[in-house]
């Protein structure tokens, strides 16, 4: 019965659990977040992300040529068309760009692979939880 001795050994070990974001669940998550923003509480650091992690998507609008390939391969249809008015000399021209709904994104980075102009990339930001799926932080323009 190996567990009999093992449990006493483990009792004096530091727990394996990562303490992110706090050791115990805070009474109110909003209150905790506010306290952290005010500098009164500290967030225990999460496990660091490895290089080439697939986090929230970055989009450089200016480089985009509006080819729509990302829309074609996106498995969750998180990318949709968007028209942007761009000033070109005197007159305004409507240009095709995309809009990415991060709340639908499945972080496969297929759009990054297919983009011919490399205007899409994946950051290592992963703390994206939100109550509103259409919040400004969750729509990449």
């Amino acid at each position: 019965m190996p567990a009999i001795t093992e449990v006493w050994k483990v009792l004096f070990k530091r727990p394996f659990t990562n303490r992110f974001p706090a050791k115990y669940a805070p009474r109110s998550v909003h209150g905790f977040v506010r306290r952290v923003q005010a500098g009164k509480a500290k967030i225990a650091p999460p496990v660091p992300t490895p290089p080439n992690f697939r986090g929230k998507i970055n989009y450089e609008v200016d480089k985009c040529i509006g080819c729509g390939l990302c829309i074609r391969v996106c498995p969750t249809k998180a990318i949709v068309w968007r028209t942007v008015e761009v000033e070109q000399g005197e007159k305004k021209v409507a240009k095709k760009k995309v809009k990415i709904f991060v709340s639908r994104c499945c972080f496969c980075s297929q759009c990054v692979d297919i983009c011919p102009k490399d205007c899409l990339s994946m950051s290592d930001e992963f703390l994206l939880a939100n109550e509103d799926k259409l919040a400004n932080e969750l729509i990449v323009l």
Binding site: A3, E6, F16, P50, F53, R54, C106, F107, S109
Partner: peptide, 28 residues
Amino acid sequence: TVFHYTWALREEIMDAIEYVTGNRVTKG
């Protein structure tokens, strides 16, 4: 107890998978 031990030991391969493929679960 065994449940918690094996899952804690499993973290190592999950981290390795994340390092290699970019994600812990849906590896893509």
